Computed example of a mutant assay.
Amino acid sequence: MTTFALPCSSTADSPPAADTQRASRSRRTAELFAAAAATEDPHEREQLLEEVTLLNVPVAESVASRYRNRGIAEDDLAGVARLALVKAVRRFDVGSGHDFLSFAVPTIRGEVKRYFRDSGWVIRPPRRIQEIQTGIAAVESELSGRIGTSPRPSQIAEALGIDLADVEEALAARGCFSPDSLDRPVGEVGDPSVGEFLGAEDPGQDAAEARAVLGPVVSTLPERDRRILELRFFDGLTQREIADDIGVTQMQVSRLLTRILRDLRRGLESPGVGGS
């Protein structure tokens, strides 16, 4: 079987040459499909369908290229598009009377959009916002080329025929695909990074919460019990040092701490203590 030269997808053809190339690809694709439908040899049929796939790889890559720079690696998008092309080749009904590309392009585009929907979001916004973002992407470049600058949200809303508030909400959610790095400077190069402005956990927060909860219960304890708690948990004394301070044995301090902690647990479990 003769091989068919695969056209390069990156060739910068003039419009007439590109049209000629598309027409040639379409004719050759139809010939290959017709031959695959006519043959009774499964191996030959597989070779013909594989040639159809290779011939139309530039089409799949062209569809994928329309979705680049949106937070997903170009190689991943191209891979999804090529796989969708393979599915389209296998599912195409030669007897439908339609051109293959009229079936393949929507199939590839649908698979790429589905990949965005299922895999692209870091934080998944509502489906309505996702659909509006897709619409924005479709008209944004066209508007930019027409007016010579980035379109305003109001211009995008007018082009899509939707409310300005919906466009603004969708634009605000754009970072859900690819959030900014915490290492990105907040201004010029050399400025502090975004991460430096994030709050850290306050080590005193837990202690403050514990004091707020335990305060009413601790206030009900005898003075010596409160003294033992202060020496142990605020001053950090050992049981031996506490025993010397209050004039008892270390064993007695251990028993006292066990009993005090038990009393505190019971106090916290009692209705109306530290509650609303």
Rank of each mutant, 00 (worst) to 15 (best):
A200Y: 02
F233T: 01
R240V: 14
A207R: 02
S193M: 10
E169F: 10
L171I: 06
D244R: 07
T238N: 04
L231Y: 03
G195R: 01
V218T: 03
P192H: 08
F234V: 15
A208I: 07
S178G: 07
V218H: 01
A170W: 02
L198S: 09
L221Y: 02
C176S: 13
A207I: 09
I242P: 02
R211L: 05
E223V: 01
A170L: 06
V189K: 08
E169T: 15
G175R: 14
A212S: 06
G175T: 09
Q239R: 12
G187V: 04
V213K: 05
G195S: 09
E188H: 07
E209M: 15
D244S: 12
A212L: 10
E196I: 08
E230D: 13
C176R: 09
S181A: 14
G190N: 12
T220M: 09
F234C: 08
D180C: 04
A207M: 04
S193Y: 15
E169A: 14
R184G: 00
E241C: 01
G175A: 13
R224N: 02
L171M: 09
D183H: 13
D225L: 10
R240E: 12
A210Y: 11
L229S: 00
V213N: 04
Q205L: 14
P179C: 12
S178R: 06
D202W: 10
V217M: 04
D235P: 00
L214Q: 01
S219F: 06
G215R: 13
D206Y: 08
F177P: 00
E169R: 03
R240G: 08
S181Q: 06
Q239G: 10
C176M: 08
A200P: 00
L214K: 03
L221M: 11
L229T: 05
F233Q: 10
S219V: 08
G204V: 15
A172I: 10
L182N: 06
V218Q: 01
L237Y: 05
A208M: 15
G175L: 00
F177C: 01
D235H: 02
A200F: 00
L198Y: 15
L231K: 00
R184C: 11
R226Q: 08
R227F: 02
R226A: 04
E241F: 01
L221R: 06
S178N: 07
P185Y: 07
G187E: 06
L231P: 01
D225C: 12
F177G: 01
S178V: 05
G175C: 04
P222D: 14
P216E: 06
V186E: 11
